[in-house]
Design a protein around this nucleic acid. Structure first.
Lengths: 273, 273
DNA sequence: GTCTATACCGAGATAGAC
DNA sequence: GTCTATCTCGGTATAGAC
């Protein structure tokens, strides 16, 4: 083995992941198209691909064991978590595209390259998937907050940059997902409590973000910890609203009055005063 | 007959409507509760009530005919339209409560006091109901626009009054319905065009409303026709966003940061500058 | 126009082989 | 853990009596 060869363990791991992704993509295609023509061929293909994928995954694990890193347990955990993460990712896409009630657990599982049985091994029910998804997404927002707006310079807001960012955000399925979390909470009292808490914490972070930006704009000081004023909180609430509704209204209508540029102007105005 | 007796035709008409409403309400209750205990009793009760309601309606028509108003045709039309209107009203409630995909046509028909068969005599499909509903609601908004905010005085905005109004609006199912129209349009390309147009026209009116308010505040002149500036349009978009999201976020979380008072402050700020 | 009955399908969820 | 097969229920939509 030459010294320039990469770690075989890592190589196989990467190949495993690549094949798993390809399998998922193909399963998705099969689910939506091929089966309508020749179901048995599609199924056989998907099955053999899945088998290959699992085989490679096992090989990867064995290599990991032989390598004696002693962290086989961690690897196994990683693989389990990866399936779960894949399912949640798929759920995010499918639910954003079809709404919670419109999405079926079969759709979600297939989008991830698995079957319903696999999904039910990880989640108790469909609503359990939704809650896990909300925890993950609104939890992520806590570390890298959704209100991470670009184009905020020392002397105001660069409306051009902000507008470009909004134009991209418009295509992001996460926007529809946010709305879905909101309406789901309003319609399912049993989940309302937890979702409310997640929304509140997410909002708090947005408010702090606003407070920070305003401090910089007003006094040129960059503070780490800040206590948002009532005005900052109001502003954050308005920005979140604009982000969610104005953006989507613009996408639906295509009207210049609701374009990303319009959204950027509003946000700039809100942050200015 | 004493001269103080009301028009018998009108009396019977009113009674008919009252009974129809009572029938619908009872059918609703039966659908949700009674059937779980003694299904056959509930069904029989609903059936006989429906019969009575129709019978009274026919009587009303006969009286109308005998009265020789010559507008029997109109009366009939009115009755047909009333069923349709009842179905749409029910659809609004059910879809707001359960989302479009979550609402079943059976639920909608029962909420109106009818059966699925009746609904399908008026609408071709579930999506047809949704589109008709959107036309009606977003069309109504054109005459008495949704952005009919109270508390707008000559020298600013009465935040107290506005907050009280927002607190009431929070419980209004129409808010969730508005969001449903938006997401439905985004998710169903075939309906997107029409929904987009309705949203645009609704927005135009909101913008004019904003322009009018601002003219009064700035110059004390009340103009009938106005041409909204870009700033007015931006403001309208922001207010609509806040109305839809901030209000519902407040309802979900119960946080004082997203209270009706907070929403009122934001709207006041948007209209002020 | 309205109701009852039913065709037909796809949903969520479970059981058991591997 | 994952898949296949299956259960059960409820969905949309239609047919036909009244």
């Amino acid at each position: 083995m030459s010294r320039h060869e990469p770690d075989p363990q890592e190589t196989i791991g990467a190949a495993t992941r690549a094949l798993a992704d390809a399998t998922a993509a193909l399963t998705r295609m099969i689910g939506s198209h091929v089966n309508q023509v020749v179901p048995e061929v599609g199924e056989a293909l998907a099955a053999s691909l899945r088998e290959a994928s699992r085989g490679l995954a096992d090989a990867s694990e064995n290599v990991a064991k032989r390598a004696g890193t002693g962290r086989a347990e961690e690897r196994r955990r990683e693989r389990v978590d990866r399936t779960r993460a894949d399912l949640l990712d798929a759920a995010a896409r499918v639910i954003a595209a079809q709404s919670y009630e419109g999405a079926s657990v079969g759709d979600i599982a297939a989008e991830a390259g698995y079957t319903k049985g696999a999904l039910y091994a990880h989640f108790r029910s469909k609503s359990d998937v939704m809650l896990a998804l909300a925890r993950e997404r609104l939890g992520i927002a806590l570390e890298s907050p959704e209100l991470d707006l670009p184009g905020l310079t020392d002397d105001g807001v660069d409306v051009e940059v902000l507008a470009a960012w909004l134009a991209a955000a418009r295509e992001d399925p996460r926007l529809l997902l946010q709305l879905e979390f909101l309406t789901y909470g309003l319609r399912h009292p049993d989940a309302a409590g937890e979702l409310a808490e997640l929304h509140v914490r997410s909002f708090e972070l947005a408010a702090e973000q606003v407070a920070r930006v305003r401090l910089v704009q007003a006094h040129g000081v960059a503070a780490g910890d800040v206590v948002p004023t009532q005005d900052d909180r109001d502003t954050a609430l308005a920005i979140i609203s604009v982000l969610n509704v104005a953006t989507l209204e613009g996408k639906l209508t295509g009207s210049p009055d609701m374009s990303p540029a319009a959204g950027a102007r509003i946000i700039a105005r809100l942050l200015a005063d």
